[in-house]
């Protein structure tokens, strides 16, 4: 599958001191597929995303984008491969000192894809795609509600029309209705742009809405992967316990160790 995969993760390992977080993660994501990685808190989901983004160097393994290993590619080539990625951070990570339109057009300006004189108008167009009007363009992030901040962060992530999109806990901190709205926007954006996406979450409702496929990360490895529609009939006791939120089962919480 890795020959035709947009993103392939091969034998990825990462430890912090004596704590092994990723212990040989293997994952293939076909082009235009929405993959959701589920797993408990502290299971290494965020570390996996940060390794793909190049924010954390893994100890071992390969990360292939379009068949090229970004970990061994020359710096400029690795940067070009990663420039295809748009990222939605868990809490938005909007720049406090920049207005909404400056946040949205930040990546376009940094990559020289647009003139500053055109940036505000382009940002307003992108904001419209996530359901926000021009009135918010000149506000600052601290003047927005949590849901609006998430929308602006999504607008920033899609502004450069990335071929790959990563979503870190996209519905965290939102009420169920706003969570569903954000999920709907994510699905719309990913489909419209034809992007390949990876979302990490422990919100199963969200996973069901945005994922074509679901993989479960446990003890630093992918323990199950399949179509989103099959997750409730996976037959995997780890997946069953997780999606049903049962206290008893093979997953032992850290408190018990």
């Amino acid at each position: 599958m890795s020959e035709c995969a947009k993103i392939s993760v091969r034998g990825l390992r990462k430890s912090f001191g004596t704590k092994i977080v990723l212990d040989g993660v293997d994952l293939d994501i076909a082009p235009r597929t929405a993959m959701v990685v589920i797993g408990g808190s502290g299971s290494g989901k965020s570390v996996l995303l940060k390794c793909i983004l190049g924010l954390i160097p893994p100890d071992d393994g390969q990360i292939l984008i379009d068949g090229e290993d970004v970990l061994t590619a020359p710096t400029s080539r690795a940067r070009a491969l990663r420039d295809q990625i748009g990222m939605l951070f868990q809490n938005g990570a909007l720049f406090d000192s920049e207005s909404v339109w400056e946040n949205v057009s930040f990546g376009l300006l940094a990559r020289g894809l647009i003139q500053r004189s055109r940036a505000r108008a382009r940002a307003v167009e992108v904001l419209a795609q996530v359901g926000l009007g021009e009135t918010v363009a000149d506000l600052f992030p601290n003047e927005l509600s949590g849901g609006m901040q998430k929308r602006v962060a999504l607008a920033r992530a899609i502004a450069a029309e990335p071929a790959i999109m990563l979503f870190d806990e996209p519905t965290t901190g939102l009420d169920p209705i706003m969570g569903a709205v954000i999920d709907g926007l994510i699905v719309d954006c990913v489909k419209r742009l034809g992007s390949t996406s990876i979302a990490i979450t422990h919100d199963m409702a969200s996973a069901g809405r945005i994922g074509d496929r679901i993989a479960m990360l446990f003890d630093g490895r992918i323990v199950w992967e399949g179509n989103a529609a099959e997750v409730r009939a996976s037959g995997n006791p780890l997946v069953d316990q997780f999606i049903n939120g049962r206290r008893e089962g093979p997953i032992k919480m850290a408190l018990r160790r």
């Binding site: 190049g54 924010l55 420039d83 951070f89 990570a93 720049f95 990546g107 990559r111």
Partner: peptide, 8 residues
């Protein structure tokens, strides 16, 4: 981290 992902 967001800066890094925005080519900065």
């Amino acid at each position: 981290d967001a800066l890094s992902t925005l080519a900065t």
